[in-house]
Amino acid sequence: MATVIVRIPTPLRPFAAGRAELEAEGATAAEVLACLGQIYPDMLARVLDADGAPRAFVNIFVGRDRLRDKAALAAPLPPASVISIVPAVAGGHDGRQRSPAG
């Protein structure tokens, strides 16, 4: 079974021991993520919903291609795959006050 690199975005690193990259084994993205979820369940909960599908505000890419749904997550991974997790980022708000722009 192949070892796959998973890139963790900054907002999820607090739930992945602060790591920017993790390695996990699996023949599909679903297996890789499940493997990580055993160690970092809070991170996985922010990536997949209870049904195992990508959440509406998170994207999972293999290479540059997007895995949109459960079926895509269950597809065999190409050799030497890198999985990237890309969440929606609002950006800019400093938490000081409610702010629509800036």
Partner: peptide
């Protein structure tokens, strides 16, 4: 779009 929050985005 240089906004800083989801409702605006």
């Amino acid at each position: 779009d240089g906004s800083d929050n989801f409702p605006t985005r």
